[in-house]
Simulated assay, not measured.
Amino acid sequence: MSTDLLVQASGLSVRYGAKTALDDLNFTIPKGRVVGLLGHNGAGKTTLMKALVGLKRAEGTLTVLGMDPVRDRVALLQSACYIPDVAILPRWARVSELITLMAALHPRFSAERARALLRRTSVNPSDKVKNLSKGMVVQAHLALVASIDARLMILDEPTLGLDVLSRKSFYEMLIDEWCDGERSVLISTHQVEEIESLLSDVIMLNEGKVVLDISLEAMDRRFVALSHDAGAAEQMAAAHPLLRYRLQGSGARTHAALFDGEPPADLQALGQRVRPSLVDLFVALTRRPEMDRTQF
């Protein structure tokens, strides 16, 4: 495995009895990337993250930091961090005591860094966990885990329970203090609009399958949206775009059509190129058959 690839998956599948949660996934995560893992509830995101840290046995080939996540789990967790969607800390402890405990348990944990990160939150080291709000518990948990000198951080809805300012502060900390061009982050979240500007890549799951694995730079080159007025709607629809949707604003071109690749030249003459958002693409590639989003 190349040292530039922190994660490499080939033919990765996970089954719960008769149900297939992950179906023949193939993807890589290079170093120095911030990867968004997107999908509807039940798409397989949490199962994939658990497989990456050895909490779920998978079929196929999976290496994380050059290791087998199940066989080498103890060694792997020296250099990989996983934050699940529920932050749980012992209610009896003070935050300062948790810092001391982490320093004793994890050889790559920095107490100094944890205190520095906590200064960017509303949590004081002297606070008892039982007196913290849900959002403050999340902040403390994130600060503790982010103080481990890891090469890969896996975050499952990391800012669940935080208000918008706290979420912004966390992502700023993550990018400014943790991402250094060598480490990579995999973030699963439903707050796509908030993190799109942070991402370098996206892996999109739909019903256990990868429907998109691409850098945002390549995404901008590949997918094209055309804004158009209502009079061009039928011609746009006849070209079978991935998605037709309304644009915000009160101008004449209030509709848009999203295409995978260059639209036909005659259609380009009827519209104006606009950048499709990651949310637009997510809707286009993960829509359920029973939902018709082509109607205005």
Score class of each variant (00 low, 15 high):
R222P: 02
P90E: 09
L199I: 06
P276F: 07
L281Y: 05
H190V: 00
A51Q: 03
S215E: 11
E217D: 13
M49T: 06
S215G: 14
A225H: 01
V74R: 15
I29L: 07
F170S: 11
S215M: 07
R108M: 02
G44K: 04
T3V: 06
R120Q: 14
V14S: 09
K45S: 03
L101M: 13
P263Q: 09
A233R: 14
S122N: 09
T254Q: 13
G231W: 04
S184L: 01
S184I: 04
S169E: 09
G66I: 02
H106E: 07
A239T: 08
L247Q: 10
M153S: 15
D156K: 03
R115T: 01
D213M: 05
F282E: 05
A225F: 03
V35K: 11
E234R: 15
D292C: 12
G249V: 04
L62E: 02
R73E: 10
G135E: 07
Q191P: 01
E97N: 12
Q248G: 14
I214E: 15
P69T: 11
C81I: 14
G39T: 07
R120H: 13
M67Y: 11
N41L: 04
V211W: 02
T100C: 08
T47E: 04
E112D: 13
V137F: 05
R244I: 01
V138C: 12
E207Q: 15
S79E: 14
N206F: 00
I83V: 15
E157V: 11
G39L: 05
C179T: 14
R287C: 03
D149G: 06
V202T: 08
D24P: 08
G32Q: 02
G261W: 02
V210M: 05
V145K: 11
A225D: 03
E193V: 14
D149Q: 10
H240Q: 14
P90S: 07
F27H: 10
T254V: 11
M153W: 14
W178C: 06
D229N: 14
I203D: 07
L243R: 12
N206I: 01
L144I: 03
I88A: 13
D149T: 05
V137M: 04
L142W: 12
K134M: 07
H228C: 13
A269D: 10
L77Q: 13
A269C: 05
G66F: 02
K50G: 01
S96F: 04
L155G: 02
F282L: 05
A237V: 04
I29P: 02
R183W: 10
D85F: 11
G161P: 05
P125K: 12
A18V: 13
V274Y: 06
Y171Q: 06
L155N: 02
A80Y: 03
P84Y: 07
S184K: 04
L278W: 03
S79C: 08
Y245N: 02
K128N: 04
L22N: 08
K50N: 02
E196L: 03
V70R: 09
V74Y: 10
Y82V: 09
A143F: 01
C81H: 10
R94K: 15
G42P: 02
K19C: 00
L281H: 05
Y245A: 06
A111H: 05
R57V: 08
G251W: 08
L205V: 08
W92P: 00
A257T: 09
A233G: 07
Q139Y: 00
C179S: 13
R15P: 00
A104N: 12
